[in-house]
């Protein structure tokens, strides 16, 4: 076989290898995305076969739609509760666990357990724990003179409760990411810091740990933000957006419009906004990851 034919054979093989994947990407990503764009300019609804082109009407409707504003506000409130706490708590847990070599693996397992569990099922457990009358949490809170709280039934509390459950389910995940980042910091840097006189925990943290964790922190922040915007399971199981739409978050609204009210056109427009937000996060990450500290 000559070199040329060998090369051609290799190219043919390459095309054969990527063919199934390429077709599926076309069918599952490219075509649907284009279709979503298309649908978002129509008043398409699954219940009637008749639909027409409405231009930017769906997007205009969004601006006027109280439900949309409500969902955005709810999502932002939820995110502002969930993001800082999930970041800071997991970072401190990771640092504390990292320092305790002998307990590291058992603690890692215990904190990671909620990540593997089925959130839909665990949400039921949380609902029972948070029950306003007979729940264990209120019982304990009462023992120290607090509450009772109406965790899931009150408009002011429900997003806080959602954030709490999400926090529980995601802490282990972020913590493991931080642990990986911490392990990658060369120990000689801490030693150099000790020699330079930076042996106070505060100095160690701000002079070495925090700057060296930069890329990990960025990654955790971005994935957590996307997770926050994807809040769905607990809302669908526990509140269905209630009480009085106070837990109706963005993705849940999109789901309702599309698959409960069958307003496909509007839902498609909402999905694209959702995609835009995720793209934004990805962009932020891409921009910052390039500025990585490198040796």
């Amino acid at each position: 076989m000559s070199l040329g034919t060998k090369k051609r054979a290799q190219t043919r093989l390459a095309y054969m290898l990527v063919l199934p994947a390429t077709l599926l990407i076309l069918g599952i990503y490219i075509l649907p995305i284009l279709t979503v764009f298309g649908i978002s300019f129509t008043d398409y609804s699954l219940v009637s076969n008749y639909y027409e082109f409405v231009g930017l009407e769906n997007y205009r409707h969004m601006l006027a739609d109280e439900a949309f504003g409500n969902a955005i506000v709810n999502t932002l409130i939820y995110a502002s509760l969930f993001l800082p706490s999930s970041f800071i708590i997991s970072l401190f847990l990771a640092i504390a666990i990292q320092e305790r070599k002998q307990f590291r693996s058992i603690l890692e397992v215990l904190y990671f357990l909620p990540v593997t569990s089925t959130l839909a099922a665990m949400a039921l457990v949380w609902a029972a724990l948070m029950d306003s009358n007979q729940g264990v949490i209120n019982h304990w809170a009462g023992a120290v003179g607090l509450g009772p709280f109406n965790w899931l039934g009150s408009e002011t509390m429900v997003l806080f409760s959602m954030a709490l459950i999400s926090l529980w389910s995601v802490i282990g995940f972020n913590m493991v990411l931080f642990l990986a980042g911490l392990t990658a910091i060369p120990s000689s840097l801490y030693e150099a810091a000790a020699i330079d006189g930076a042996d106070h925990p505060v100095d160690r943290f701000f002079r070495v740990t925090w700057p060296m964790l930069g890329p990990t922190s960025m990654f955790v922040a971005v994935t957590s933000s996307i997770t926050a915007f994807k809040l769905f399971d607990t809302v669908a199981i526990l509140t269905q957006g209630g009480p009085n739409r106070s837990s109706e978050v963005f993705l849940y609204l999109t789901f309702l419009e599309g698959f409960e009210y069958f307003n496909m056109g509007y839902s498609a427009a909402l999905s694209l906004v959702f995609l835009g937000i995720i793209f934004l996060f990805a962009l932020v990450q891409a921009l910052f990851v390039d500025r990585n500290v490198q040796y």
Partner: peptide, 16 residues
Amino acid sequence: AALTIPINVTSIPIYV
């Protein structure tokens, strides 16, 4: 590019 696209965005056309 597809890495950033979650199922929630493409669900409508696939469902249809």
